[in-house]
């Protein structure tokens, strides 16, 4: 999915330039003025990119948003299974296109992206106008970054390494996944698709 690619590329661009702004050890690798410039360019690219995709593909994005937003009884039972669900889907209640963990991850990271945008905007504005300067802005920007790094590490682990879930990555790259795998992990989605295609 294009939106995923836009988020992924700009995320790593912002992570790298942000690390250069954050760490004295990296301050010489990329100086503050250029790191700040590319940090802002990446943020704007993410915003413009997502906006363009929303305008061009409103129905597809709307579908994803609805899927992420809505939790049914099965999702609740899935979450009650705790963290073991992340690694083992046997016996789990049937899941739709996204499982409850993926939905929660998407919601929380989206929320963190908004928090990072707000705090980033305040940091940028505060540098030119003292009205927008608050003592807590840097700390919240840092905390949100730390959280999103931890979540993204988990995201990468589950999509690239963990045998139980890495089959889904094919879906991100090629647009299709193995039917048998999907039946085991996203049974309701498969059934919905099969019914729709009848």
């Amino acid at each position: 999915m294009l939106a995923h690619l836009v988020v992924a590329i700009t995320f790593f661009a912002m992570l790298w330039t942000g690390a250069c702004l954050y760490s004295p050890a990296l301050a010489e690798v990329m100086n503050r003025p250029s790191a700040k410039y590319w940090h802002l360019v990446s943020a704007i690219a993410l915003g413009v990119g997502l906006l363009a995709i929303i305008i061009l593909r409103p129905r597809a994005i709307g579908q994803v948003v609805r899927e992420v937003d809505t939790f049914d009884e099965n999702d609740r039972l899935w979450l009650r299974g705790g963290t073991k669900r992340l690694f083992d889907h046997t016996g789990a209640p049937e899941q739709g296109w996204l499982n409850a963990g993926q939905k929660l991850f998407t919601s929380v990271t989206s929320g963190l992206m908004v928090v990072l945008t707000i705090t980033g905007l305040l940091l940028w504005l505060g540098e030119q106008n003292t009205t927008y300067r608050f003592a807590g802005t840097v700390d919240v920007h840092d905390l949100a970054t730390l959280l999103i790094i931890v979540l993204t590490c988990g995201h990468l682990y589950l999509s690239l390494i963990s045998p139980a879930t890495r089959a889904a990555t094919r879906g991100i790259v090629t647009g299709s996944v193995d039917r048998e795998w999907a039946k085991q992990n996203h049974a309701r989605w498969v059934r919905d698709m099969e019914q729709r295609n009848k």
Partner: peptide, 29 residues
């Protein structure tokens, strides 16, 4: 554990998690 092939109750937990995260961030500042 509890197969419910046709779940009825639908909860907007996604937006709750999203808005909760945003609120925590703004409150944090």
């Amino acid at each position: 554990e509890h197969p419910t092939p046709t779940p009825r109750s639908r909860i907007p937990l996604g937006r709750a998690a999203f808005l909760g995260t945003v609120a925590a961030g703004v409150g944090g500042i």
